[in-house]
Design a protein around this nucleic acid. Sequence first.
DNA 1: GTCTATATGGAGATAGAC
DNA 2: GTCTATCTCCATATAGAC
Lengths: 205, 205
Amino acid sequence: MVDEKEKDSTEQKIIAAAKQVFHEKGLDGARMQDIADKAGINKALLHYYFRSKDKLFEMIFREAVARLIPKVGILFLEDVPLFEKIEKFVDFYIAMLIENPYLPLFVMNEIQKESGREFLEGIFNGKKPAVHVLAKQIEEEVAKGNIKPIKPMQLTMNMVSMCIFPFMGRPMIKLLWDINEEQFMQAMEERKKHVVQFIIDSIRK
Amino acid sequence: MVDEKEKDSTEQKIIAAAKQVFHEKGLDGARMQDIADKAGINKALLHYYFRSKDKLFEMIFREAVARLIPKVGILFLEDVPLFEKIEKFVDFYIAMLIENPYLPLFVMNEIQKESGREFLEGIFNGKKPAVHVLAKQIEEEVAKGNIKPIKPMQLTMNMVSMCIFPFMGRPMIKLLWDINEEQFMQAMEERKKHVVQFIIDSIRK
DNA sequence: GTCTATATGGAGATAGAC
DNA sequence: GTCTATCTCCATATAGAC
């Protein structure tokens, strides 16, 4: 009984190992041997559980993205004041990236390829995050004179950029500022409040 | 006479092709065959001109980075007021990225690998950009009460993030906002002034 | 389900003719 | 300098015993 999702079943071990290796090295750089080693099994078993490397990759990736993208979409749609929406977005996004630090590079690489377009379509599965809802809200606040004039797309890019980029540039940031992993993570925690404040300070009249 | 750097010498054709393929697919994803095809020659010639794929890659990459990194370092060191320094940095950085849109992903991928550390050391060649000079300047402005209190590292991350990220996320941005390449580039041009203003609005008292 | 052993294919690299 | 043909290696994938 209750064999359900045995934390250390072979399948789970493979998924955990694959996640790590794929995230670190990308699809091309990852070696099935590395994944097998990390999972404590041999290559043949990988093919027994997942038919091919591509299948395994896609499965790992889609699981992560499918779980996270919808949550972002919902944040855009919620009927809350702009500043609160920004705060919720930044909080959620950075918290999510702390849990999935390799995801951004992973996604950026995929969308850059020739197949990137269809890849993106697949991710969103027809339902793109409603950036225009957020855009409309920003425009209304500008029109009402509640915030300084600003182009919604630029503001949104600023917000997303400041959340995501530090995780991609982590090794360089650590080197340039001479900080260790712990200090970096500490800075990311602080960053939740910092980015919100930085944005609000900029657009508030 | 004057054979110097014949624009369409085989070597130049290889370099142009390699640059394109490496930038699009990264070291692992790039195929020597692709590069040869794009250069209109065969694989053997690639090895005649450059001993190995790694050598070719390194050559392409170092050329671009070696040309650009020092310029950033100089910007940090210049003895100009903070706001002006920020403006110069953002202007230069975005202009550079318009010319080299694939460089960021390229760099991010390299630094993420196990070999990333030594790779970075190699890039900087002992002379890291002097972020601490900028940091000191920011701290002084805060102390003097000229700008709001802000942590130098966070402010610097914000600045760099807002410059670089849109170029990495370009395909997704174009899809979500439903704009074409021309409109995207237009937005990046506007962005030079936008980001500067956004930052100054945020930190100015 | 898990292993060992092996097949298959593709990529970088080389030899040698021209 | 440039080509064709070939080598070698290594990663994915499969066969088949246990």
